[in-house]
């Protein structure tokens, strides 16, 4: 059982950041994962009083507060229109509505969980993570960093025109993915984010000659399969995941307009 000695609803990001410098203190997101640990937290730092639970949409970007529940992302008309439904598709399988009403986007991304649909999806978007101390960090860089003592404040998704599609395979409909795949294309580059390998999602930027318009689905999928490291765990073997990387990439490319050989 998790033990929490002290609870502070931070009055400012500075206060939260200050408290978070202590190793034994923790920022709490939706608490879904943290709750299952059995350690002791000296001070639980709650960001829910800082107005970070809103999604703001401008002409240039979506600015998503760290405390926005996954359910709000899932239902956000603007985000879903922009991502052609990929946002909802990446979230709707996660346990249940009640779970997604609690789980926060900040918690999901900060944890850089291997199984994360959220990270897989955002990696495929033109997104920047706003850290209180570290400032703006591209999502790809953020994903590669080890969790540190900074505070994740917001995620900014630029409205770069894009094509994208999200697909996943699961052993049951509301389980973690066996493999998740986000294919997106902007600025003439095809990007494929593969999650639940079972290691954390990785982003592959394909060579310019491998675009749905000039390469076959099979060529693209093979490239992604070759460049994706998969592993085995209780949900599936590395070989099956590798196979899925091929199949899901192929299908997602097809969804965004690719063609068969």
């Amino acid at each position: 059982m998790l033990t929490i000695k002290k609870y502070v609803k931070a009055a400012s990001l500075d206060e939260a950041y200050e408290l978070n410098q202590k190793r034994t203190n923790r920022v709490i997101g939706g608490m879904l994962w943290l709750k299952m640990s059995s350690g002791t937290v000296q001070t639980a730092i709650d960001l829910s009083g800082l107005g970070l639970d809103t999604i703001e949409e401008t002409d240039e970007e979506f600015s998503i507060g760290a405390m926005v529940p996954l359910r709000d992302l899932e239902l956000h008309a603007g985000l879903n229109a922009y991502t052609h439904g990929a946002m909802r598709e990446s979230l709707r399988h996660i346990v249940g509505v009640q779970f997604r009403n609690l789980a926060t986007v900040g918690g999901s991304l900060y944890g850089r969980f291997g199984f994360s649909d959220v990270l897989t999806c955002f990696l495929g978007l033109d997104a920047v993570v706003e850290l209180h101390h570290g400032g703006m960090v591209p999502i790809k860089e953020f994903a590669a960093q080890k969790p540190d003592r900074d505070i994740l404040v917001r995620i900014h998704v630029k409205k770069t025109p894009l094509r994208c599609a999200y697909l996943s395979q699961r052993n049951t409909k509301t389980d973690f993915p066996v493999l998740a795949c986000m294919v997106s294309e902007w600025d003439g580059t095809l990007r494929v984010s593969i999650g639940a390998r079972p290691q954390k999602a990785s982003l592959i930027e394909l060579p310019k000659d491998l675009m749905p318009e000039n390469a076959s689905l099979e060529e693209i999928a093979s490239y992604v399969q070759e460049h994706t490291v998969t592993g085995s765990n209780m949900r599936a073997s590395a070989a099956y995941r590798s196979r899925l990387a091929y199949v899901l990439t192929k299908r997602a490319c097809q969804q965004i307009g690719g063609m068969d050989k």
Binding site: A236, Y240, R243
Partner: peptide
Amino acid sequence: ITAEKIAMGLL
């Protein structure tokens, strides 16, 4: 009978 057994069996 998992999806993996089916897919890998077919493969």
